[in-house]
Nucleic acid binder design. Structure first.
Length: 371
DNA sequence: CGGTCGTCCACAT
DNA sequence: TGGACGACCG
């Protein structure tokens, strides 16, 4: 869902752009977006379990678009569900199941067009589908990373650590995770919308030196995000108005002043809401991600002094560096925990070296034979 | 004015 | 599914 209406709100921080402008950049790509769009072309087959590679073709077409613009893609896939999202997931599964039955009924009645629409509404992106795309990427030497938890946080880490200078997604949450440069709405011609963190102050109508990213994050959470539904009648505009007046950094006490500051006396800010707010903020700050350079599981941002992973259980369980590496490589089915692959970047390098050696020897022998 | 709720659209041909 | 866009409500 992301943040309701965030992209229109960020109009002053955005501009039209084209992939042409980003030659020789590395881009971290939200693979789920492409998987989902690609699944539309073959929704009926996917739901009925018939074999299709339509979605793989689509993703590879998009990958080619980047390659043709001399952009190096890193495809980032979703990993395990955060505990806080488990409820949402089961609800979605139920809705999909209902749609699937309706689609089958429509099909039996011969209403093909309506059935197709229904199929499109219940496509589920499975880890098997992600695995197909991962295999296609491997075959073409395209880098992939499966996030330990949400792809969003992983994409942000790749951007913040400088591994990728760009993030490509359709999900406005990425702004909130702290990304520096994001491309939204990429089309077949490479056209897209660029949102830069440097320009966020324009949207909030404050000069650059008065802008605080903490306030921006708080504003978005208050307006309603995936981790915390909004209070009734509060959207981005009200949240922006509120946080532009507030300077006290203590969120707990600040939230109590919400009804009087916004002149909404009917508004009730419960203890539960305030706790939820802190948890949502910490999930954006400290969600666990995989560091592909040092091959460790770590929080998106460093923990405050004296804190550790156990203090933020809702931001991901600490599953250990080795398990995180196996997940990141795509060797684990994150929905079942089953080992599906034994890919290792190190043995693959050894393998590449052996191939190199083989050709070098052949060449040497050939040279000897000539003379 | 700003917030909410509904409808349409994506893919690819 | 989720975002965009237009219509209605406080």
């Amino acid at each position: 869902m992301g943040i309701q209406g965030l992209l229109p709100f960020l109009k002053k921080a955005s501009r039209e752009a084209n992939l042409r402008e980003f030659r020789h950049y590395t881009a971290a790509v939200d693979a789920y977006c492409w998987l989902h769009k690609g699944a539309f072309s073959c929704a009926d087959k996917l739901v009925r379990g018939e074999p299709t590679n339509g979605y793989v073709m689509y993703v590879m077409k998009q990958v080619n678009l980047l390659l043709n613009n001399d952009i190096k893609p890193i495809l980032v896939f979703d990993g395990c569900n955060l505990p806080s999202k488990a409820l949402t997931e089961t609800k979605r599964r139920e809705i999909r199941e209902r749609n699937r039955k309706r689609a089958k009924d429509l099909l039996r009645q011969g209403k093909t067009r309506e059935a197709k629409e229904c199929f499109q509404r219940c496509v589920d992106i499975t880890s098997e589908m992600a695995a197909e795309v991962i295999n296609a990427c491997r075959a073409r030497n395209i880098d992939i990373i499966v996030a330990p938890y949400e792809a969003d946080a992983q994409l942000a880490y790749l951007n913040l650590s400088g591994i990728a200078q760009l993030v490509i997604t359709e999900d406005s949450d990425l702004v909130l995770f702290g990304c520096k440069a994001i491309l939204f709405k990429m089309d077949n011609n490479g056209g897209c919308v660029l949102v830069e963190q440097e320009k966020l102050h324009h949207s909030m109508n404050v000069p650059r030196d008065k802008f605080s990213f903490d306030k921006f994050r708080n504003m978005c959470i208050l307006s309603g995000c995936d981790y915390l539904p909004s209070l009734h009648g509060i959207g981005l505009a009200k949240a922006c108005k509120f946080f532009s007046v507030i300077s006290n950094p203590d969120i707990h006490s600040v939230l109590c002043k919400l009804p009087s500051y916004l002149k909404m006396p009917q508004l009730e800010v419960t203890q539960e809401y305030r706790d939820g707010f802190i948890k949502a903020r910490n999930t954006f700050l400290y969600q666990l991600v995989f560091d592909p350079i040092d091959r460790i599981l770590r929080p998106l941002n460093d923990y405050p002094d004296g804190n550790e992973a156990e203090d933020f259980p809702y931001a991901g369980k600490f599953i250990g560096h080795k398990q995180a590496l196996q997940i990141a490589l795509g060797n684990v089915n994150v929905q079942t925990g089953e080992i599906v692959n034994h890919f290792s970047p190190d043995t693959s390098k050894v393998f590449d070296f052996l191939i190199f050696l083989h050709y070098a020897l052949c060449f040497a022998l050939y040279e000897c034979w000539i003379y």
